[in-house]
Protein backbone atom coordinates (compact mmCIF):
# COMPACT_ATOMS: atom_id res chain seq x y z
CA UNK A 1 0.00 0.00 0.00
CA UNK A 2 2.73 2.42 1.04
CA UNK A 3 4.81 1.32 -1.91
CA UNK A 4 2.03 1.90 -4.42
CA UNK A 5 1.44 5.31 -2.86
CA UNK A 6 5.11 6.20 -3.16
CA UNK A 7 5.34 5.03 -6.77
CA UNK A 8 2.23 7.03 -7.51
CA UNK A 9 3.89 10.03 -5.89
CA UNK A 10 7.02 9.45 -8.01
CA UNK A 11 4.87 9.32 -11.11
CA UNK A 12 3.12 12.53 -10.16
CA UNK A 13 6.52 14.11 -9.62
CA UNK A 14 7.57 13.27 -13.16
CA UNK A 15 4.40 14.96 -14.38
CA UNK A 16 5.49 18.30 -12.96
CA UNK A 17 9.23 17.88 -12.58
CA UNK A 18 10.09 21.47 -13.50
CA UNK A 19 7.58 23.04 -11.12
CA UNK A 20 9.96 23.65 -8.15
CA UNK A 21 12.51 25.25 -10.46
CA UNK A 22 9.84 27.50 -11.98
CA UNK A 23 8.94 28.67 -8.49
CA UNK A 24 12.59 29.34 -7.74
CA UNK A 25 12.97 31.28 -10.99
CA UNK A 26 10.19 33.63 -9.90
CA UNK A 27 12.05 34.69 -6.77
CA UNK A 28 15.58 34.88 -8.19
CA UNK A 29 16.82 37.81 -10.20
CA UNK A 30 16.50 37.42 -13.97
CA UNK A 31 19.68 36.85 -15.92
CA UNK A 32 18.93 39.48 -18.55
CA UNK A 33 21.64 42.10 -18.94
CA UNK A 34 20.09 45.50 -19.59
CA UNK A 35 22.73 46.13 -22.18
CA UNK A 36 22.66 49.79 -23.24
CA UNK A 37 21.98 50.85 -19.65
CA UNK A 38 24.38 48.50 -17.93
CA UNK A 39 27.91 48.31 -19.36
CA UNK A 40 29.06 44.91 -20.60
CA UNK A 41 31.61 43.02 -18.54
CA UNK A 42 34.76 42.63 -20.60
CA UNK A 43 37.52 40.45 -19.13
CA UNK A 44 41.06 41.74 -18.92
CA UNK A 45 42.40 39.37 -21.53
CA UNK A 46 39.70 40.07 -24.13
CA UNK A 47 41.19 40.24 -27.60
CA UNK A 48 40.11 43.62 -28.94
CA UNK A 49 41.59 46.50 -30.87
CA UNK A 50 45.14 46.07 -32.20
CA UNK A 51 47.59 48.74 -31.08
CA UNK A 52 51.32 49.20 -31.35
CA UNK A 53 54.29 50.77 -29.57
CA UNK A 54 55.59 52.56 -32.69
CA UNK A 55 59.08 53.08 -31.29
CA UNK A 56 59.59 49.33 -30.86
CA UNK A 57 58.57 48.42 -34.42
CA UNK A 58 61.45 47.50 -36.69
CA UNK A 59 59.34 46.96 -39.76
CA UNK A 60 60.34 43.30 -40.07
CA UNK A 61 56.95 42.32 -41.49
CA UNK A 62 56.51 39.12 -39.46
CA UNK A 63 53.06 40.21 -38.30
CA UNK A 64 52.07 40.99 -41.88
CA UNK A 65 53.26 37.60 -43.04
CA UNK A 66 51.45 35.66 -40.32
CA UNK A 67 48.20 37.60 -40.31
CA UNK A 68 45.54 35.08 -41.45
CA UNK A 69 43.07 37.80 -42.45
CA UNK A 70 45.48 40.05 -44.39
CA UNK A 71 44.56 42.93 -42.11
CA UNK A 72 48.08 44.36 -41.93
CA UNK A 73 50.11 45.92 -44.71
CA UNK A 74 53.72 47.04 -44.74
CA UNK A 75 54.63 49.79 -47.21
CA UNK A 76 58.41 50.00 -47.29
CA UNK A 77 60.40 52.48 -49.28
CA UNK A 78 63.77 52.15 -47.65
CA UNK A 79 65.23 50.45 -44.62
CA UNK A 80 64.11 53.18 -42.28
CA UNK A 81 61.18 54.56 -44.22
CA UNK A 82 58.06 52.40 -43.90
CA UNK A 83 54.41 52.47 -42.97
CA UNK A 84 52.49 49.74 -41.15
CA UNK A 85 48.82 49.98 -42.03
CA UNK A 86 46.01 48.19 -40.20
CA UNK A 87 42.51 47.49 -41.58
CA UNK A 88 40.25 46.84 -38.58
CA UNK A 89 37.32 45.58 -40.67
CA UNK A 90 39.43 42.75 -42.04
CA UNK A 91 40.86 41.86 -38.68
CA UNK A 92 39.78 38.56 -37.13
CA UNK A 93 41.12 39.57 -33.69
CA UNK A 94 43.01 36.30 -33.42
CA UNK A 95 46.10 37.89 -31.89
CA UNK A 96 48.57 36.10 -34.15
CA UNK A 97 50.43 39.40 -34.76
CA UNK A 98 51.06 39.71 -31.03
CA UNK A 99 52.44 36.16 -30.95
CA UNK A 100 54.58 36.64 -34.02
CA UNK A 101 56.13 39.97 -33.05
CA UNK A 102 59.62 39.33 -31.70
CA UNK A 103 60.04 42.88 -30.38
CA UNK A 104 56.83 43.05 -28.36
CA UNK A 105 55.68 46.03 -30.38
CA UNK A 106 52.23 45.08 -31.61
CA UNK A 107 49.60 44.11 -29.01
CA UNK A 108 45.87 43.85 -28.41
CA UNK A 109 43.84 45.88 -25.95
CA UNK A 110 40.57 44.65 -24.46
CA UNK A 111 38.62 47.40 -26.15
CA UNK A 112 35.69 46.12 -28.22
CA UNK A 113 35.65 47.42 -31.80
CA UNK A 114 32.32 48.46 -33.24
CA UNK A 115 31.60 48.44 -36.94
CA UNK A 116 31.86 51.78 -38.68
CA UNK A 117 31.67 53.40 -42.08
CA UNK A 118 34.08 56.16 -41.16
CA UNK A 119 36.95 55.89 -43.63
CA UNK A 120 39.44 57.35 -41.18
CA UNK A 121 38.79 54.49 -38.79
CA UNK A 122 38.84 51.83 -41.50
CA UNK A 123 42.45 52.47 -42.48
CA UNK A 124 44.70 52.98 -39.49
CA UNK A 125 48.35 53.84 -39.89
CA UNK A 126 49.99 52.10 -36.95
CA UNK A 127 53.59 53.10 -37.70
CA UNK A 128 54.80 55.90 -39.96
CA UNK A 129 58.58 55.69 -39.71
CA UNK A 130 60.80 58.28 -41.36
CA UNK A 131 64.55 58.57 -40.96
CA UNK A 132 65.36 60.87 -38.08
Amino acid sequence: MIRTASTLLENLKTLAYLLPQLGRALVTRPETVRFPFAPPVIPKGYRGRVEIHPEKCHGCGLCVRDCPAFALELQREELNTFKLIYYPERCAYCGQCEVSCTFGAIYQTNEFVHGTDDLAQLVVTLVDRKPA
Binding site: L26, T28, P30, E31, T32
Partner: peptide
Amino acid sequence: IARFHGRVG
Protein backbone atom coordinates in the same frame (compact mmCIF):
# COMPACT_ATOMS: atom_id res chain seq x y z
CA ILE B 1 6.80 32.85 -18.98
CA ALA B 2 9.85 35.09 -19.24
CA ARG B 3 10.19 35.10 -15.47
CA PHE B 4 9.88 31.31 -15.40
CA HIS B 5 12.69 31.21 -17.95
CA GLY B 6 14.85 33.55 -15.88
CA ARG B 7 14.42 36.45 -18.29
CA VAL B 8 12.98 39.92 -17.78
CA GLY B 9 10.29 39.80 -20.45
